[in-house]
Structures are given as structure tokens and as C-alpha cells.
């Protein structure tokens, strides 16, 4: 593997890892629940990258079979199916989390986790 390919591969992985750890940082370090949910959502998008960047093949194209070109190279369709499932389930879980945030805000008047734990609400 000559240098540009090596660099592209590792640049992609490094950015993916950076995004993953940064969204984990948001989840752990921020006490605002909406921001925590944003962090969870971003963490999920980094998983899409981790699955889909190996599924791209050099010279390959979108996995929709072309009748007139037998023997064409296609990218791997299986991770795309899995991630398609993950996105829609992700928005469903996100909406459940947001509904919990709305209920917590109605009961306690705050969406900050630290204020909830201190008990001065």
C-alpha cells in the first residue's frame, strides 16, 4: 500500500475515532439532557461511518444492478441494510428520550442533571 492510500485509510479511521470520542465526551461531561441526547445521536452517526467506510470498494458503484453492464463492481450492500435499520430505530429511540425530557421538565422544572441530583428543585 503506497503512501496516499495509507493516509486516506487512516485519516478516515482517525476522524471516525475522533468524532466517536468527542460525542462520548458530550454525553459524559455535559449535564443538560438535550445536549446529552444530541451527543447520543452523534455517537450513532459515527457508527454509520465505522460500518460504511469499509463497505466502499475502489472502482465500485452503488449496489443497484445494471442490466446492461454484467461484471460491474458494486459496493457491499449488507452494511448499508444494517445501517438503514439503525437510522430509523435511532430516531425512534431519540423521540422516546425527548419525551422523557419533556416529562422531567414538566415535573421538576429543569433539564439539568446536576440540579436534579442536588435536589434543590
Amino acid at each position: 500500500m503506497y503512501f496516499p492510500d495509507w493516509f486516506i485509510v487512516h485519516y478516515s479511521y482517525m476522524i471516525t475515532i475522533f468524532l466517536m470520542v468527542s460525542s462520548l465526551y458530550i454525553i459524559v461531561m455535559r449535564s443538560n439532557m438535550i445536549k446529552k441526547l444530541v451527543g447520543l445521536n452523534l455517537f450513532q452517526t459515527t457508527i454509520y461511518l465505522l460500518y460504511l467506510s469499509p463497505s466502499k470498494i475502489t472502482g465500485g458503484t452503488v449496489p443497484i444492478i445494471m442490466y446492461d453492464k454484467p461484471g460491474a463492481i458494486y459496493s457491499n450492500p449488507l452494511p448499508q441494510v444494517l445501517i438503514l435499520t439503525a437510522i430509523v430505530v435511532g430516531v425512534a429511540t431519540l423521540s422516546v428520550g425527548l419525551a422523557l425530557v419533556v416529562r422531567i421538565n414538566e415535573e421538576f422544572g429543569t433539564i439539568e442533571e446536576d440540579e436534579l441530583f442536588d435536589g434543590n428543585v
Binding site: 463497505s55 466502499k56 438503514l84 437510522i87
Partner: peptide
């Protein structure tokens, strides 16, 4: 760019549209 057109369309409709609207309404 990664050749995942179905996933891109879902992400555009769900991530860019729907979840942003839900978060704004919260």
C-alpha cells in the same frame, strides 16, 4: 461518497429533517 444512496436518503430525511424538528419542538 461511500456509495450508500439509500442510507444517505434516510439520513437526509430523518437526521437533517425530522430529528431537528423534534428537538426544536422540545
Amino acid at each position: 461518497v461511500l456509495d450508500a444512496v439509500d442510507v444517505a436518503m434516510t439520513e437526509a430525511a430523518v437526521g437533517g429533517g425530522l430529528s431537528t424538528v423534534l428537538m426544536l419542538s422540545v
